[in-house]
Amino acid sequence: MAYSDKVIDHYNNPRNVGSMPKDDPKVGTGMVGAPECGDVMRLQIRVNPETQVIEDAKFKTFGCGSAIASSSLATEWVKGRTVEDALHIKNTDIVRELSLPPVKIHCSVLAEDAIKAAIGDWKRKQGADEAQASAATASAKE
């Protein structure tokens, strides 16, 4: 099976490879994997708390070329979008952009899951922060 030019491009020049501090409250981390093929993908976003815009995204993927290309593309696409907007990225968009064959569709599903997981993690942190903040104000009132 031949990879499309876009997959090869992302594979040879992956965008936004790297990591961000997991404990940073502005950073959301999504770690997902496909047990069937043994792939594992980590996608991280850094969100501006005022604007809710994803200002930076990093990924690291251990897996096949399509998995790497899908996550590389995902980081490109989430950057500059608001969190809510990024949730609308569908795996089918990734399939189309990279011309993934049917056997590699699960790679795009993984990338979509990684975006959702990263945003979910970030949202949890915001919730936790608010809870902490209100707990702090509550104890301050006592």
């Binding site: 770690m31 994997g33 069937e36 594992v40």
Partner: peptide, 16 residues
């Protein structure tokens, strides 16, 4: 390749 099957998070961390 069809059903979504998630691995337990601690295993994913370890795998990573």
């Amino acid at each position: 390749g069809q059903t979504k099957q998630q691995a337990p998070p601690e295993l994913l961390e370890e795998v990573f």
